[in-house]
Amino acid sequence: MEGWGIIIIKIVFIWTWTLLIATLMTWIERRGAGLIQDRLGPNRAGPFGIFQPLADGIKLFTKEDIVPEKAHKILFALGPILFALPAFSAYAVVPFGDKIVLGGKEIILQVADVSVGFLYIVAIGSMSVYGIVLGGWGSNNKYSILGGLRSTAQLISYEVPWGLALLAAVLLYGTFSLRDMAFAQQGVFLGFLPNWGIFKQPLGFILFMVAAYAEANRVPFDLPEAESEIVAGYHTEYGSMRLGLYLFGEYVNIYTLSALIVTLYFGAWNLPYVDMSKFLGPVAYGLASFLVFFLKVAFFLWLFVWVRWTVPRFRYDQVMGLGWKSLIPLALINLFITALFVQFTA
């Protein structure tokens, strides 16, 4: 059990790291979007526009904070806070590397290794609905209410296949704790395939990816903030740092979901056939595992941006139909097959 000081340092580190990645993501999103769309993204604010997120941050902080006259003041203010809080606190149980040895003490690179593991993330994820609901309702704007309603329905519909895909993973690894799942993905199986989750659970991976995109309100499921249809959905009336909280909360959500995908299906910090702890010192191993984990997460962050500018937005009834009529039966079938597989190979 580590002391309070180390845990607080880890919390601060994760908080700043996710915020930093969120700001970097705004730059990657705009540049990536531009390059995919046959134009360049921002390239004036610094070389290749790298200072654009800084400019955006300054703009968001210094803009006038406008609250609509008939809006419900408390709900309007509470919306972004209730959206950003679960986003920032969900990362507490996700590991971001293996252990590191600093000053003689062994520190695991995870804020809290609880026995209920990722169920904490499921709980926190279901709380993030409230930020959208309150933001939409408190704005006193029919587009916002529509966006809030649609988003609520979409989020709670896609929590079911999300949870079921995670359940199949739990069945496979036999534990809820994400750190133990990362340990279970070392080595090879069938002689040549790395022991990663994607080779044992391909259908689960696809289901989890689709449900993760729906949970993050990203295209093709971004109807709640459909920019061309309902103005900006639930965050129409928000400006300055309140909008900043919504946008940053969304990017931090994306980061947490990518980290979950990597931990469950891509072996967290394990390289395919190489065991790094054998030839690296303890400090170097900690840093190397952090780097490997981050590179894998970076690929999935890029995938979020890439898919956004490839696939058109789904219609609302298509979203609901996909969630209830396609993904849930597939998730149940996946659970059944995994249960059979585990039963006959245990």
């Binding site: 990536g32 531009g34 390059l35 995919i36 769309q37 046959d38 134009r39 360049l40 390239n43 290749f48 890439w306 898919v307 500018w309 490839t310 696939v311």
Partner: peptide
């Protein structure tokens, strides 16, 4: 579709490193 957008991305990515005017054919800076 991802393959198609990847081709566009690579083309424009290489184009934005080239010096001189008119590097990206569809977007004039």
């Amino acid at each position: 579709g991802l393959g198609l957008t990847w081709k566009h991305f690579l083309f424009n990515f290489r184009a934005c490193f080239r010096p001189g005017p008119h590097t990206v054919p569809t977007c004039w800076q």
